[in-house]
């Protein structure tokens, strides 16, 4: 089994203090801790589990700066076999489309039976890179994947839908599967893994290596431009309801109805 996993090195923003940077289009990242995108961690685990069962090789690909090596080394320590970092000044400002194009630039020449990505990235939340990449490669895809069963020539996957619904479908392989959190339990990095990772290949490629032109990537190759980034003001207005249980509950229903919420 040849498995490629696309990962992203992202800032942990869930519990951090976020501030907008001077451009007004991004956030200040100096004080943030970066790590592998949460969804991608599950994708890597799934790939390593499949490899441990069926044999083969897991290749990690990322578009990012040198800092992303921390995430790549983590993937290698968890059992991936080699890593490729795609780095170029020209890649800055790429949207999901341009990012998928950069990934396509390298993946088109690699052997693969399966490509795994996370369903979305925790920082920009586009949830599009995997899907667009599948489009470039002309292979089928499935998103929000919660379970993967590999068969001869196809894979049976469970997709997690809203409302606790699951959908089972068959996807012809090679395919791209965008993995949902909870599909497995990502392992911890072990010291043994860290030591082994040092012997594994970590390759860096740029624009020219991928045969891409400058205008195809970065802002010029993107379809989306960010206008503004801001933190919505916290509204402190609250109405305290007093009285008996019945009076309070009918007041709540009344308010929700008045606002068209129920």
């Amino acid at each position: 089994m040849e498995i490629i996993v696309c990962v992203k090195h992202v800032p942990e923003t869930a519990e951090a203090e976020i501030a907008i940077d001077s451009s007004g289009k991004g956030i200040k990242t100096e004080d943030l801790v970066f790590d592998i995108n949460e969804w991608d961690d599950y994708a890597v685990e799934e790939a390593v589990l499949i490899k441990e069962k069926l044999g083969g090789r897991v290749t990690i690909v990322t578009v990012g700066s040198e800092d992303a090596d921390k995430t790549l080394r983590k993937c290698l320590a968890k059992g991936a076999d080699r890593a490729i970092r795609l780095t170029d000044k020209a890649f800055d400002g790429s949207d999901a489309y341009a990012t998928a194009k950069i990934l396509y630039g390298v993946i088109k020449d690699l052997p693969f039976d399966l490509i795994l990505t996370g369903t979305q990235a925790g920082d920009d939340g586009y949830a599009q890179v995997g899907v667009i990449l599948a489009g470039f490669l002309g292979i089928p895809h499935a998103t929000m994947v919660k379970k993967i069963e590999l068969m001869e020539g196809f894979t049976r996957v469970n997709r997690e839908l809203e409302g606790g619904l699951e959908q089972v479908m068959e996807v012809g392989t090679p395919a791209l599967l965008a993995v949902q959190t909870g599909i497995n339990e990502p392992r911890y990095v072990s010291i043994m893994g860290i030591r082994k990772a040092r012997q594994k290949e970590l390759k860096v490629l740029g624009l020219n290596d991928l045969g891409l032109k400058e205008e195809e990537v970065g802002e010029s190759g993107s379809w989306i431009t960010v206008e503004e980034m801001f933190i919505p003001p916290v509204e402190k207005e609250a109405e305290i309801l007093v009285g008996g249980l019945d009076a309070i509950s009918s007041k709540i229903v009344e308010t929700l109805r008045a606002r068209g919420l129920i």
């Binding site: 921390k70 080394r73 983590k74 320590a77 911890y188 072990s190 860290i194």
Partner: peptide, 18 residues
């Protein structure tokens, strides 16, 4: 070193979860 940095992160992550 890079390896020590990785060990530090691994130890921290393990401890923070467990």
């Amino acid at each position: 070193t890079e390896e020590q940095e990785d060990i530090k992160n691994a130890a921290r992550e393990f401890a923070e979860k467990e």
